[in-house]
Design a protein around this nucleic acid. Sequence first.
DNA 1: TATGAATGAGAGTTCATTCAT
DNA 2: AATGAATGAACTCTCATTCAT
Lengths: 198, 198, 198, 198
Amino acid sequence: MSDTRMPVQKRSMESKKKILDAGFALFCEKGFYKTNTIAIAKRAGVSTGAVYSYFKDKRQIYIAAFEDYLNGISSQLIIKLESRQPFQLIDFVDSWITFYMDLYADSGGALAQLRMMIVDDEEIRYHFSQLENRYFSNIVEILIKNGIVPNNLLERVYTCCILIDGLRQENSAFSHNGLNFDVFKQQIRESVIGLLNV
Amino acid sequence: MSDTRMPVQKRSMESKKKILDAGFALFCEKGFYKTNTIAIAKRAGVSTGAVYSYFKDKRQIYIAAFEDYLNGISSQLIIKLESRQPFQLIDFVDSWITFYMDLYADSGGALAQLRMMIVDDEEIRYHFSQLENRYFSNIVEILIKNGIVPNNLLERVYTCCILIDGLRQENSAFSHNGLNFDVFKQQIRESVIGLLNV
Amino acid sequence: MSDTRMPVQKRSMESKKKILDAGFALFCEKGFYKTNTIAIAKRAGVSTGAVYSYFKDKRQIYIAAFEDYLNGISSQLIIKLESRQPFQLIDFVDSWITFYMDLYADSGGALAQLRMMIVDDEEIRYHFSQLENRYFSNIVEILIKNGIVPNNLLERVYTCCILIDGLRQENSAFSHNGLNFDVFKQQIRESVIGLLNV
Amino acid sequence: MSDTRMPVQKRSMESKKKILDAGFALFCEKGFYKTNTIAIAKRAGVSTGAVYSYFKDKRQIYIAAFEDYLNGISSQLIIKLESRQPFQLIDFVDSWITFYMDLYADSGGALAQLRMMIVDDEEIRYHFSQLENRYFSNIVEILIKNGIVPNNLLERVYTCCILIDGLRQENSAFSHNGLNFDVFKQQIRESVIGLLNV
DNA sequence: TATGAATGAGAGTTCATTCAT
DNA sequence: AATGAATGAACTCTCATTCAT
């Protein structure tokens, strides 16, 4: 038991952070239902009681942990995409695809888990329903800022997002026998460019 | 050692069917984890014991119920698509989109649930991993039979499937503010036609 | 389904016999608690209902099966022992040891199981409490018939029985490290002979 | 993944102890199969959940409870036997018989239960298989220490143990009609002395 | 405030027994 | 008489949550 007392608030914040990190890691690894609160507490190095002093219940840990994560990555993606100057559409699309796939690869299943829980649980669905909208809006903004302004831009961006996410799915979840990934990627890339380059 | 019952009597087969139907309905409504075996038994109008004489465990009910369902719908979709003669690409694509969306709409969450469980549970994933491949192959077959043979057809079909499923998602899972569904649908439609009409 | 109808009573007897045999085999292999009635019915090739038309409950199958078995072996042992003529004490003791051990070896755990259930279950204990008395009496009879009449014969025989059963235990249940079985057997043999040869 | 709790707080250790005591009492009274975890929890005055935070399953309660018990009694018997000085063989044998029978009488069925479960359950058998060897070795040691060193001592001791346990059985499990217990005891006593006094 | 032991409802599952066919 | 599907109480075990310390 360390003698040096830290400011109460700061220690408290650290415990909360540890719980969120532990919860997030476990939820990604094993999913919501196969993760229990005792395991979260253990991984976080705190007591089970502590978990319930910071969060009303298990679901709130989930929501808070994924909110943190999403805030992190969404800004990350946008920052990376904005930083590539001067703007070239083809370069932008390639970066988008690359960054998006890296993000998923690094997420260790986080985004797949979240998609699942959005289907499964009403409260989680409600909480994250605006999630993708932010992402779309950000992309739309960047495009407008750089003079890419076809009609129905929002819908175009959405279609692009679906295509890019399809590529991601192919890469991670299923193994679709006989599919040539490079050919597929090239098709997606061309479709996206076609949609934005009017 | 105790193996699950092989229905012999008529009564028995009816019970098994009732369990599958009840299980399927509940799994779709509430998801795997929020459905318990007592509820399945009650809904099926049988005892809890009966459930376990037909199925080794809850997961097997899930697998059997969804297998039945998928066998039903996959042939349904293909039959509908093949029945539209003479073949016209545009007409084919419109039918595809319509039928696919109807299927999901009628499934009452079944397909969304299944996607979720494929992510969540290893045994279920293993069991249904080949599921989408069958669907792709069927579409490819129809196209070839009707003279649509661009290069990289499999990849093109896959891309089309992703686009159409994106449309479906938009319709069911999320509400993306400000998105004009008809515009979006038109974009998808054109992208699909563009991919197949080389 | 064989067309030739057997006399009802005879068929009935056969089913009962099959249930007893199946029950006995399973009880020996797995014990009373790990054997279930469905398995007995299956092994016997009859319906579960049939089991309950011949026996009030699972315990009665156990009792009847072991009673049959014990009647069989006790007469067997006595017949074998009586058939060795002319009577020589040493030869008698050797035969006794040999036959007893063979009996156990062939019983496939039956007697060990029975001992266990006699401890565990009041009704079974009650039913078989006289079991060993018959065995002692038989041995005593043979000895008297052949002029072996030391004082306290019943007690001597009982002590002999314990010694011989100890030899059997050593051979089957435990592995007592470092024990030389032949030496041990020789000791038992001599103690038994000593007890009877006054 | 969830490991059983390592008691840290004092309260916790008391609970574990209470569960062990309750389990032991019930296992002795009613046997393993007729004792359920709810009854153990109730008798221990704890919740069912508590039982499973200290023990992986019911069998582990059994094993731990009997291990505790055996550790207690095995040293007890040896200590009593060693404490009788100066060593006299006849006195030693009489003490051995007396203490052994008292032990069983006081055990309230514990040792009989354990013998039964050693036959019935593989894991329990494995856990306690060395049990009797320790007892034999202890007796052997005492005898050697006191100059009783006939050839084949281990086997002699084993034979003695069987005889003494036979006496114990007679006293507890069966009622062998017509057997004069005192005569029988005298026979056993003399056989044991004969085996050791060469 | 932090701890972690304790809770207990409820989950999945088994199986001796019954009874409609 | 025979069948075997059906029953449902009882069992073992889990875990989100609480609360005495």
